[in-house]
Amino acid sequence: MAKREIVQQLQKEVLSLQQSKKPVVGQPVNPDLGELLGAFPNKTFPTGAVHEFISPNPENAAATNGFLCGLLGQLMLQKGPCLWISARRTIFPPALKVFGIDPERIIFIDLDRPKQVLWTIEEGLKCEELSVVIGELSQLGFTESRRLQLAVEASNVTGFIHRYQPRGENTVACTTRWKIKPISSISGDMPGVGFPRWDIQLLKVRNGKPGSWQFEWKGGQFHSIAPQRFSIIKNERLKTG
């Protein structure tokens, strides 16, 4: 027993060295993601990191926004407001209430040029009183992503970069890469459309195990709807780091 504790302690230390992150003060925020948390180191959702979401079409973008809002609702419970920065925003504030967010607590910043978007995201990520910064843009280079990563390492703000129709899936310095697409909802015996369901692919996660899961948003919570499949995604080589 003692040995295991020592090993766990050492693992934590190694992780903190690898991530070069300052220790989180107080209770870490851990969204209720069930089995998906197993993919992350320490079974903890990496807050204070930059996550990358890729959506190739408007349907996937809507699903990604839904998943993001679910996470956001839980991350915003403890800390301050959220910044939503984009050049072409389509989010409809009244829909956010369903995901447990008070839409008036989100500050939307609508800019014209991608350069301004990047600057604003970086400034936002440096501000410790924000809980989350969401940036919508299509192109993100490695250098820029590295800057964002350095900003969050100092401030411990969580960043979500939502890339809509990127030209290519280039390597970036983000902690994770996600792809979320909608799947058919199940409404049981009832007619009509059921609760939103998504196929969540975690293609890349630093020091973790990538995989794919299916989740449903019901009653203000994520529900895992299929047994965990650690099957390796055939076409895409898994990357870490």
């Binding site: 839409p103 939307f108 910043i109 609508d110 604003t120 501000c127």
Partner: peptide, 25 residues
């Protein structure tokens, strides 16, 4: 939230006041 207000002041200084929005029902 002084830091947030200061951040928004900086953003407004760079990109203009009209870029910052908040919505109410």
């Amino acid at each position: 939230n002084v830091a947030v207000a200061e951040l928004l002041d900086r953003i407004a200084g760079k990109t203009g006041m009209h870029t910052i929005h908040r919505y109410l029902p």
